[in-house]
Design a protein around this nucleic acid. Structure first.
Lengths: 127, 127
DNA sequence: CTATGTGCAAAGGGTTTGCAGACAG
DNA sequence: CTGTCTGCAAACCCTTTGCACATAG
């Protein structure tokens, strides 16, 4: 599996973006950039990139997939008011994996945490 | 919103079940018990129970919703080999919520963790 | 009788797939 | 020329909704 021209463009988009994008959002941006591309191709490329481990994919608690530049393991905050995702700058809690292995057995590859709540007005203003 | 006869039955099913069920699985079991019910009704009742906070709902990383008896906050282990969900008997890590609030601001209502990995043969045998 | 719950089938949202044409090597 | 990538539309899966009928109080 190789990265195509469109794949590279989508990858770059995700790297530059601050946040997390759905396939639709990526399509929209590409269209704004006068790139002629279809939604199916966006999905196909996102899936390739994901299979290659070059990007991340998270499930929105209510909708479909959210794609995410792959800056390793990090956690997400889901604002239940605005339904927006945010990255959290919190260290990966490696010890949780070890704990689960001890208690439950098996080999833990990774874990994902999604925090849910709302953001302070204060915090919003600071952004 | 009140619980209907079917709702009660579905709730009971989830309480008795060891694992986690999809709407389809619940439908299947009910049909085996000669309960005449449609998938739409299963969903409607699951949604009511969920709104009432009587059961939990988790997104399968790859599929739709998984419904879960609501024994409060607990974490899940997703076996990537068998694609099965398991409950984890690990204490809710309250301090993570506080940490996020401190670092990120806002009010954290809850968080969910899904561990991914595989289970030891040893552990499987023990079951 | 009135309000709510139900089954069925149709619609809906998000994602994938089949196919013929476009493109790259 | 051969194989891969693409766009489009159709198909797909899971979930929700509309509607007429059934049921409960």
């Amino acid at each position: 599996m190789k990265i195509t021209k469109h794949g590279q463009r989508i990858y770059d988009l995700l790297q530059e973006s601050q946040g997390h994008m759905t396939a639709e959002e990526i399509l929209l941006i590409l269209n704004q950039q006068n790139v002629s591309i279809g939604l199916a191709t966006v999905y196909r490329n996102l899936n390739s990139l994901f299979s290659l481990g070059m990007i991340n994919r998270v499930r929105h608690p209510e909708m479909g997939f959210i794609y995410d530049r792959n800056k390793h393991d990090h956690y997400h905050f889901y604002n239940t008011e605005t339904k927006e995702f945010h990255d959290l700058d919190i260290a990966y809690q490696e010890e949780l994996d070890r704990l689960v292995e001890k208690v439950f057995g098996g080999k833990v590859k990774t874990h994902s945490i999604i925090f849910e709540g709302i953001i302070d007005e204060d915090h919003k203003l600071k952004k």
